[in-house]
């Protein structure tokens, strides 16, 4: 148990979550807790159900059964209602609005925020985190490089002033050096008070960044624990990190 866990109630709790797409079961009883101030990652291979978890939290897919609690209260409604409660998602594949400018994309992120001063402050913060976005603010998002688009997707999610930032595969399709840059900024975002939950196929980077990790396999939780411990666990090394000796 980390210090954070001892003191506070979880910011986000997922309890026995089941989600199906028709006959296909994507999540079969998943459990997860995120405490305030933490960075938590869910790792797992392609198709394990990681994105489904994110979409279920955001109200984008219907859950079959189970509970999702945010600050102790059930998280219900469609995604546009969920965003107003203090969590936002940087979706898989970035999904920036290609025909809008960088600035307009960020303004879309601040849609649920009505306080103009707050929007101004958040914009300044995002530009400080990602100076590249300030340089390119009047450029169309579709003309940005993959790394810049990922920065924009994260910045756009931050514009909603979330207490919990959800990140779906922020390293997808990016060069290792750019991944490093982006993860450095994620650490900084966390240090400035935003709790982070990320799902990643890039297990090494995710575990290096996180405080705690969950391992997901075919929609189920197979292991959880301190990120450092997971990083050195021989089974995890063999299955997700491609290093170390085979576990058997």
């Amino acid at each position: 148990m980390t210090e954070a866990q001892n003191q506070k109630q979880p910011l986000l709790s997922v309890r026995d979550l089941h989600v199906s797409y028709g006959a296909i079961k994507a999540l079969r009883g998943f459990n997860l807790d995120v405490y305030p101030g933490e960075i938590v990652c869910v790792i797992g291979s392609n198709g394990a159900g990681k994105s489904t978890l994110m979409n279920a939290i955001m109200g984008n897919v219907k859950k079959q059964s189970g509970k999702i609690l945010f600050e102790g209260k059930p998280l219900e409604g469609q995604s546009f209602q969920v965003v107003t409660k203090g969590l936002s998602l940087s979706p898989e594949g970035r999904k920036v609005f290609a025909p809008l400018t960088v600035y307009e994309n960020l303004m879309m992120g601040s849609f649920p925020v009505n306080d103009k001063e707050k929007v101004k402050k958040d914009l300044e913060w995002v530009y400080t985190l990602f100076p590249r976005l300030r340089e390119r603010r009047s450029q169309y998002a579709g003309t940005l490089s993959g790394g810049e688009q990922q920065m924009l997707a994260i910045g756009r999610a931050l514009m909603a002033s979330p207490r919990l930032l959800l990140l779906d595969e922020p390293s997808l399709g990016l060069a290792p050096i750019i991944i490093k840059d982006i993860f450095k900024e994620l650490k900084r975002i966390n240090e400035e008070g935003v709790t982070i939950l990320l799902v990643e196929q890039n297990a090494r980077q995710a575990l290096l960044l996180s405080h705690r990790g969950y391992v997901m396999q075919t929609g189920q939780l197979v292991m959880e624990g301190d990120a450092k411990e997971l990083l050195h666990n021989p089974e995890i090394q063999a299955a997700y990190l491609g290093t170390g000796k085979k576990a058997h």
Partner: peptide, 24 residues
């Protein structure tokens, strides 16, 4: 306007605009 921007965003990607807090 805010809703005008949302309409332009939605015309590119309706689902993601919902994720931004727009009541689709």
């Amino acid at each position: 306007t805010k809703w005008g921007l949302a309409i332009r965003a939605a015309s590119y990607d309706l689902r993601t605009s919902g994720l931004m807090g727009v009541n689709v």
